[in-house]
Design a protein around this nucleic acid. Structure first.
Length: 269
DNA sequence: ATGGTCGGAAGCCGA
């Protein structure tokens, strides 16, 4: 548990929760999050390794898994006042879970579709799905009550919006995750509810910042061809509560790493 | 240079 009156929330695309339990324990050692928001858990709810999380003190949970791919989960040391899951784009494909803590802070954990390889919705259904998913998020949050609500949104949003969120802006302009149409949708999502991109409060936009490096690189660290796909946003009501955002780059070099690293947001709500 | 490597419902598919 972090110090009194602080709330630490880690988001991590683990690329299989069952194979990443050692890494999760290492993340807990490093950041001592109160709440863990995981994506790509890749396991049905009945086979989720809850006991491993309970042993680390995360006795409260909401999980939304499907067989073999996708899947999200929120594991918490703090109790929930409410929690649930939601389907998007008419698919029960394990991409959203939410939980409201007893202090009223609502945490939304998303796994936005990656979008496939071709950045054209007319020929690539996965890209069309991604754009529709982001559009639904915009409408959903815009229709909610005032941004005075204390909301957190974290997860693998699969979009790197800033030029410094990718290793080469020019080289990735036509690569899914950094195309203008995706970036415009993510910007519209942020604007729709006044969301604050918290990592960029602490790391200036001029500075490169990544959370994902491909498995396919021969030497991910030296090549450093990363992208910032994992995000932690808060509504303006929590702006004054922001304390830190840490991106755990060393996790990419751990044994059996995920291709994403954890991002931990600390608030004094 | 259009490959490369992971993880799972495997021997392919999604990332």
């Amino acid at each position: 548990m972090t110090a009194a009156n602080t709330l630490a929330i880690s988001t991590w695309n683990v690329n299989s929760v069952r194979i990443r339990l050692d890494g999760i324990a290492a993340l807990v050692d490093a950041h001592e999050p109160d709440v863990l928001c995981l994506q790509e858990t890749k396991v049905v709810n009945g086979s989720f390794p809850l006991a491993a999380f309970e042993a680390l003190g995360y006795v409260h949970s909401v999980i939304n898994g499907i067989k073999g791919y996708n899947g999200v989960a929120i594991l918490s040391r703090l109790p929930f006042a409410e929690s649930g899951t939601r389907d998007w784009c008419g698919k029960a494909d394990g991409r959203h879970a939410w939980a409201t803590l007893e202090n009223g802070v609502e945490i939304n954990n998303f796994y936005v579709p990656a979008g496939g390889d071709v950045a054209d919705p007319a020929v690539n259904d996965k890209f069309a799905h991604k754009l529709q998913f982001l559009a639904e998020m915009i409408n959903w949050f815009a229709a909610r009550s005032a941004p005075a609500n204390r909301l957190v949104m974290v997860g693998d949003l699969n979009v790197a919006p800033l030029e410094t969120d990718v290793w080469s802006h020019k080289a990735l302009l036509k690569v899914v995750s950094h195309t203008p149409v995706e970036v415009e949708l993510l910007d519209a999502l942020a604007a729709s509810h006044g969301w604050i991109d918290t990592a960029r409060v602490f790391t200036p936009p001029e500075e490169r910042l990544y959370s994902w490096w491909s498995y396919r690189a021969r030497d991910w660290d030296t090549a450093d061809r990363g992208r910032r796909l994992d995000h932690a946003w808060v509504t303006p009501a929590l702006e004054g509560a922001l304390r830190s955002v840490e991106t755990l780059r060393p996790a990419r070099g751990w044994d059996r790493p995920s291709d994403h690293v954890p991002v931990t947001l600390t608030l004094s709500p």
